[in-house]
Simulated scan of single mutants.
Amino acid sequence: MISINFIMLIALCGAISSAHPLEKRQDADSWRLYAYGDDINGLPIFYADGQAQLGDINLSNATNKFPVTISFGDSKTTWVAHPENTNTTTPAAFTTGGSVSPTNLLAIANTDSITSPVIFTTSNGTSGTDASAPSNTAGTSAPLTDVWTLYGNTVILNQTNADFYAQPTGKDGWYILLWGSTDQAAVGNTPVTVRTIAPASG
Score class of each variant (00 low, 15 high):
I2C: 06
S3E: 12
I4H: 07
M8F: 00
L9Q: 07
A11G: 02
A11T: 04
A11W: 01
A11D: 03
C13N: 02
A15W: 00
A19V: 03
P21N: 13
K24S: 11
R25G: 06
S30F: 13
W31P: 06
R32C: 12
A35L: 07
D39Y: 03
I45L: 13
A52S: 09
Q53C: 13
Q53K: 12
G55E: 06
L59H: 06
S60Y: 03
N61S: 10
A62H: 05
T63N: 11
N64Y: 02
V68N: 01
V68G: 01
S71Q: 14
F72I: 08
A81M: 13
H82T: 11
N87M: 03
T90H: 11
G97M: 10
G98C: 07
S99L: 13
V100A: 14
V100T: 14
V100F: 06
S101A: 14
P102E: 03
N104I: 07
A109P: 01
A109Y: 05
A109M: 08
T111G: 13
T111L: 14
D112A: 14
D112G: 14
S116F: 01
I119L: 15
T121G: 04
T122E: 11
N124R: 10
G125V: 11
S127R: 08
T129V: 15
A131D: 06
P134D: 00
N136L: 10
A138R: 15
A138T: 12
G139P: 07
G139Y: 05
A142M: 13
P143D: 13
P143M: 13
L144N: 11
V147L: 12
T149N: 00
T149F: 00
Y151E: 04
G152K: 04
G152F: 01
I156N: 02
N158F: 06
D163I: 00
D163E: 01
P168T: 05
T169Y: 00
Y175V: 03
I176L: 14
L177F: 01
S181E: 07
Q184P: 00
A186S: 15
V187H: 11
V192E: 04
T196Y: 08
A198V: 07
A200F: 12
A200Y: 12
A200R: 15
G202N: 15
